[in-house]
Design a protein around this nucleic acid. Structure first.
Length: 429
RNA sequence: GGAGAGAUGGCCGAGUUGGCUGAAGGCGCUCCCCUGCUAAGGGAGUAUAGGCUUUAACUCCUAUCGAGGGUUCGAAUCCCUCUCUCUCCGCCA
């Protein structure tokens, strides 16, 4: 949600900024509704004021034993008018709300212009993309040799799921433990456990609802169909973890809040049929270690740099080649003001693939979820800034380790930093 | 799943024969005075959002006492639905 003051006070700026990300904002419609809202709101409030005054007079008349019938007649007429005005006002406010909730965030000035991922700007490349002198296998081929079973998963659940048995399952757990330990012990994040099923308010707070319901798995308590009972499987830990502080006022001395959580993530992947159908890249269920920070507004972009480098640290310790890109305006997510993607090198695909996405949302989510702090300088209650990033997507990291650490015989070396988590073995044969 | 109790400002807590109660009192916090630097005393202020556009401030108005709906001229107070918390019983990793 954009700042309503910005929307009302400087709408030309908003329109221009939204155009950068190919979002056309219907200003005429919005202005028309706003004008109507103002008129009707004033009317309604005048009527309410009148009713309140008269009602008090009735109370006083009654107390002093005067005849209050004339007043009663007067007011009952008023009430009809008031009801009409109220319902009109509600309609308009609902329409405005619908429009406002569907407006994406405004890109930060440092976000490059562009229409698609082809226009993202590469900031750095790290590590050497080794040229292996044998027939490179992709992770599906390697996986089939070491207990990765897509057929079994299809039998159990359907496509886009996986079963792993044995060493690869352990390797995934080792990756998760390693990431958590590193972020907790070295980077100062607080370990967090949170629900995997969340309500609609939480998803509205972080921006997945109302616009992106089709991407989610939706459940009903007790098989009931009522909207109030609907719970959703989390598409990312960002949702439950950021919502820990929804509707609260944080003390300045407690900031920044740094949370790390490992959760499974569930995505319906509607609209991605035919994309990445092979292997582990795009699953309905995958593991992710997520970093979330709640920051004061004035230094949130420094925090974004820090959070991104915290995620990069994992790739560097795993010695996986990657590049860092600054997403262009056209590729930016709905809620984000600026996003760095980390893309890991996958020899099996001969391509860099996204493994982490680190974003600063400024006050966009905070306004939706009423997340604030008392600024000691202004003495005002102000919205905080929220940030998050994958640190990292565990399933894709597993793919990257398998493909980058493979040998000609199909065996997979264990990265040094993971060996202690793997019972000391150095290779999966 | 059954029975009961409850939800009021940053916190505690009054207010249920509906009527100057946006809310007594206390704590906490901020500012000022006195004193002196340990404590005490005096005074003022202290919810959020909208009307709001403005150079700015104030005044004013509206809404909000868990959420939503209803009754009424008028609801923190009465009625209904829901959510959450607590106690007891049942069930359960």
């Amino acid at each position: 949600m954009l700042d309503s003051k910005l929307l009302r006070g400087n709408i030309d700026f908003v329109v221009e900024q939204l155009k950068r990300r190919n979002f056309t904002f219907d200003v005429d419609q919005y202005n028309k509704l706003e004008d109507q809202r103002k008129v009707i709101q004033v009317q309604t409030q005048d009527l309410q004021n009148l009713r309140n005054t008269k009602s008090k007079a009735i109370g006083q008349a009654k107390a002093s034993g005067e005849n209050m019938q004339p007043l009663l007649d007067e007011v009952s007429e008023l009430v009809q008018k008031l009801d009409d005005a109220k319902s009109k006002l509600q309609d308009i406010q609902a329409k405005i709300e619908e429009i406002v909730m569907a407006i994406p965030n405004i890109p930060h000035p440092s976000v490059p212009e562009g229409d698609s991922e082809d226009d993202n700007i590469e900031i750095l490349k790290w590590g050497k993309t080794a040229t292996l002198d044998f027939d490179i296998k992709d992770h599906v081929e390697l996986g089939e040799m070491h207990g990765m079973d897509f057929a079994a998963a299809a039998k159990i659940s359907g496509s886009r799921f996986v079963v792993m048995i044995g060493k690869l399952a352990k390797l995934q757990r080792a990756l998760t433990q390693f990431m958590l330990e590193h972020h907790i012990e070295k980077n100062g994040y607080t370990e967090t456990y949170a629900p995997y099923l969340v309500n609609a308010d939480s998803l509205t707070g972080t921006g997945q609802l109302p616009k992106f319901e089709a991407d989610l798995f939706k459940t009903h308590l007790h098989g009931e169909e009522g909207e109030a009972k609907a719970l959703y499987l989390i598409p990312t830990a960002e949702v439950p973890v950021t919502n820990i502080v929804r509707e609260s006022i944080i003390k300045g001395s407690e900031l920044p809040l740094k949370f790390v959580a490992h959760t499974p993530c569930f995505r319906s992947e509607a609209g991605s049929y035919g994309k990445d159908t092979r292997g582990l890249i795009r699953q309905h269920q995958f593991e992710k270690v997520e970093l979330v920070q709640i920051s004061k507004p004035d230094n949130s972009y420094e925090v974004l740099e820090e959070l991104t480098s915290d995620a990069e640290g994992i790739l560097q310790l795993l010695e996986l080649p990657y590049r860092k890109v600054n997403l262009c305006t056209g590729d930016l997510g709905f809620s984000s003001a600026k996003t760095y993607d980390l893309e890991v090198w996958l020899p099996g695909q001969k391509a860099y693939r996204e493994i982490s996405s680190c974003s600063c949302f400024e006050g966009f989510q905070a306004r939706r979820m009423q997340l604030r702090w008392k600024n000691p300088e202004t003495k005002e209650t102000e919205f905080l800034h929220t940030l998050n990033g994958s640190g990292l997507a565990v399933g894709r990291t597993l793919v990257a380790v398998m493909e980058n650490y493979q040998d000609s015989d199909g065996s997979i070396a264990i990265p040094k930093v993971l060996q202690s988590y793997m019972g000391g073995i150095t290779k999966i044969k």
